[in-house]
Amino acid sequence: MSGKGAPQLSVENCPDLRVAVVAAQWHAQVMDGLVDGALRALRELRIDEPALLRVPGSWELPVVAKVLASRGYDAIVALGVVIRGGTPHFDYVCQGVTQGLAQVSVDTRVPIGFGVLTCDTEEQAFDRAGLAHSKKDAGHEAVTAAVATAISLRARHRRVPQWP
């Protein structure tokens, strides 16, 4: 993803949202940047008590997201990083995590901010991790997207009572 054409999201009226962040532990420095960016975004949105759960790797994100959705969270942010190696493992993990998180979101109607970096190189991951030298802050962006979607669903629900 080039980042070109990204929307400028404006998020307001959300301090009462329950938001959970679930983050993998592989690639600690990259993950620390993603988690820091996510927590900074939540503070900026005045969401004071987000849940933060750490899981072994990106593969575990969908199952934990599903449990969190069943516990009444308004939005979930999934953070992870998968870096291509020399085997098809990368493809299987990326596809499984992506499809798993999408399925959880559709099934539960809880927005999931997708902050899973799927990179060819470690350098690409560092460039997206929200660190001091990074070009992107994917953790922050994932929070903003999830919360904006939750607010949109809340507003839609209030205007259209028959919404399923």
Rank of each mutant, 00 (worst) to 15 (best):
A65M: 00
G33P: 06
V97A: 02
G86Y: 11
C14L: 09
G100W: 03
L79F: 01
G86N: 14
H27P: 10
V30N: 06
L34P: 05
P88Y: 12
V11T: 07
L17Y: 07
Y92W: 10
E44N: 14
I76D: 05
A28Y: 09
C94N: 06
V77F: 05
P161N: 13
D32C: 07
P15D: 13
P7S: 10
V147W: 07
A129M: 11
S134T: 01
P50W: 02
A20R: 02
P56M: 12
A69E: 06
A41G: 00
L117G: 03
Q162V: 14
V81M: 06
T121F: 09
A65R: 00
Q103G: 09
A6C: 11
A132P: 11
A41D: 03
A24T: 08
A38S: 12
T118A: 13
E44Y: 09
D91Q: 07
Q103D: 13
S134R: 02
A20E: 03
R154V: 06
W163C: 14
I83R: 03
A129W: 11
E12F: 13
Q124T: 07
Y73P: 04
P56L: 13
D127Y: 05
I76V: 11
H27T: 11
A65E: 00
L131P: 02
W26G: 01
A28I: 11
G80D: 03
A150N: 04
R43Y: 00
D48K: 15
A75Q: 05
V22F: 04
T108V: 09
V55L: 05
V93W: 03
E44V: 05
G37S: 03
A6H: 10
G130L: 08
